[in-house]
């Protein structure tokens, strides 16, 4: 059986908000290492990979591997009933038809109990190769969100150019064009507000802004975001949170 108690409902609520528009149904794979999810979006352009490590729960118990097939919109509706500060406990039997969710208020004067029907999902799992990326850019998550939102007003696409001079986000559309260039900065007081650029070679790739804007729904999960790029491979956008990560992979736009 699975029993996983999470001290802050907000983590799960924000995680769901960050993926439910990309992915409709997904298996939550539970093992003794924690709870993970891998799913492509409907158009097979992006891939979401979530890990909530066992040590992020207290307690965490999973006797055997379980795949909990969940409609994310339904889970999101159930989680709406949890307050951000509630303690959430997830429970499932070994061959479960239902997922049980308990929300306890901090001072334990309110306990809400929900049961959600599970579904059988035959999901394709992709093998993601270990990649040493040519460019690794870490920046404030809110900055990345703002750049994506601003440039999406200009064009459907953005070209990200990482070089020794900085990282440049550029878009060109019917109304004109625009770009934002970030230089490396160092803010020792608040590392999450720094921008760092590690580069082994220059990289230029073009991506759909629709997807990037969607990825930035994860902004409330982390102060910083890391973009990892190599020429001719998907972009990795990673939000690290306490006890896990949310990663998005996005296939580049290529010359036909």
């Amino acid at each position: 059986m699975l029993e996983a108690r999470l001290a802050q409902a907000a983590v799960l609520k924000k995680t769901l908000d960050a993926i439910k528009e990309l992915v409709t149904d997904a298996n939550f794979d539970c093992s003794d290492g924690g709870i993970s999810l891998q799913a492509m979006d409907n158009s097979h352009v992006a891939l979401v990979s979530l890990l909530l490590r066992a040590d992020g729960f207290e307690p965490y118990r999973c006797d055997r591997n379980l795949a909990l097939g969940i409609n994310l919109n339904s889970l999101s509706k159930v989680l709406r009933s949890a307050q951000n500060e509630d303690i959430i406990t997830l429970k499932a039997a070994d061959d479960p038809d239902n997922l049980s969710l308990t929300f306890e208020s901090q001072n334990q004067d309110r306990i809400s109990e929900y049961e959600m029907k599970l579904m059988d999902i035959d999901q394709e799992h992709l093998g993601i190769p270990e990649t040493a990326y040519a460019a690794v850019i870490t920046m404030p998550a809110a900055e990345f969100q703002r750049i994506c939102r601003d440039l999406s007003g200009i064009s459907e696409s953005v070209t990200i150019d990482a070089s020794k001079d900085g990282v440049k986000f550029a878009s060109a559309g019917d109304i004109g064009n625009g770009s934002v260039t970030l230089k490396q900065t160092h803010n020792p007081e608040e590392p999450a507000l720094s921008t760092s650029i590690e580069l082994s070679e220059s990289v230029t790739l073009t991506f759909s802004l629709k997807y990037l804007v969607n990825f930035t729904k994860a902004t409330p999960l982390a102060g910083a975001v890391t973009l990892q790029m190599s020429n001719d491979v998907p972009l990795l956008v990673e939000y690290k949170m306490e006890g896990g990560y949310l990663r998005y992979y996005l296939a580049p736009k290529i010359q036909d």
């Binding site: 352009v45 891939l47 093998g127 190769p129 998907p234 992979y249 290529i254 036909d256």
Partner: peptide
């Protein structure tokens, strides 16, 4: 022309 590639073109089936 520029076109959108699919993620499966890069990551193999497990």
């Amino acid at each position: 022309a520029i076109k959108q590639s699919e993620i499966k073109a890069y990551f193999g089936r497990k």
